[in-house]
Nucleic acid binder design. Structure first.
Lengths: 166, 166
DNA sequence: TTGGAATGTCAACAACACTGACATAAATTC
DNA sequence: GAATTTATGTCAGTGTTGTTGACATTCCAA
């Protein structure tokens, strides 16, 4: 019998069945991933879109609307609807750019930081439990596969944060 | 200095910064995960909900509407809207149960199988590329962490398929 | 000064989720 | 056999989040 693994390593992990399991794992895990913040959000008048906006504004304080549009991958109309409620409710404030006065630099207010903390505490708790249960090696693999699954554009945004982007 | 890792292992992988990276990895990777099927779906009149229904009917031929409701975690009204279009377009057929005539057992037609194949080929291609790039060890870790991230109920459904469920 | 970039806003629409209420048929239980 | 429960379908209304398209404002830059 010819060796089916020219590189010397087993390629059994690439069977369609294994890929299907990976696909379903993503589906079910993503549900768990969003479940806890969702529960908090639904007690307010907010949804996932608000969570995402708050998260990325927290991560990159002073980011512009345009940056946020690129990261979130939605239309400005869609983002604007969300941002307006966050302004109105006093969670986010927009400061006119000093150099370029067309830009609006987004910042969380104290109230906004409180919501961000509540949401990310909930989400991190589950992530931490999963990490702890799986161990550091598994976590390393987890991150490696997810990164390989991103579009190049998304991967750039994911990695670009290491050296600060705002 | 006291040893911060009583078990002897480093717990540095549990820092908030690492957890945040994991959270964003999930966010960006899920976008990539759904991007390819989404492109196919939008050329038709279908969306992600149709994809999910077709996927799970393919995986568990003869599954009932109730089973599907549990797996997908949506309301019957929501699922019904999707199933109706799949019936009307001749992608899925419902057979009245032999033992329990209230049940509708769902099956893909040839046309339905064709769509399923197109969608899962696209999704598997990306998953395969990611798996190959990351290697078997990373894939193992990927699956372990995702599994730990699921709700217990979801985990049961994810695992229950090993021994066939339809 | 003109063109384009960054942003905001109005209107309409679609996908996909939800709740609540009601209907039907069949199984189950008393 | 009657009453109840289960499985499914359907009608109506609502909400979140996305989309296009069009238009206005402000301001940087050539």
């Amino acid at each position: 019998m010819a060796d089916p693994t020219p590189g010397g390593e087993s390629l059994l992990f690439l069977t369609d069945e294994n890929l299907r399991k990976g696909i379903e794992a993503m589906f079910f895990a993503y549900r768990g991933f969003t479940a806890d913040p969702d529960r908090i959000l639904e007690t307010m008048d907010y949804g996932r879109a608000h969570h995402r906006a708050v998260h990325f504004i927290h991560r990159s304080p002073g980011t512009t609307v345009g940056n946020l549009l690129t990261i979130l991958g939605v239309t400005k109309q869609s983002l604007n609807r969300v941002l307006r409620t966050l302004f109105d409710d006093g969670l986010v404030e927009a400061r006119v750019g000093k150099q370029d006065k067309r830009e609006r630099h987004l910042h969380l207010t104290e109230k906004g930081r409180a919501l961000e903390r509540a949401l990310s505490d909930a989400q991190r708790a589950r992530m931490r439990a999963a990490y702890r249960a799986a161990g550091p090696n598994a976590v390393q693999g987890f991150r490696t596969v997810l990164e390989a699954m991103m579009d190049p554009e998304q991967r750039r945004q994911y990695q670009g944060l290491k050296e600060g982007s705002a």
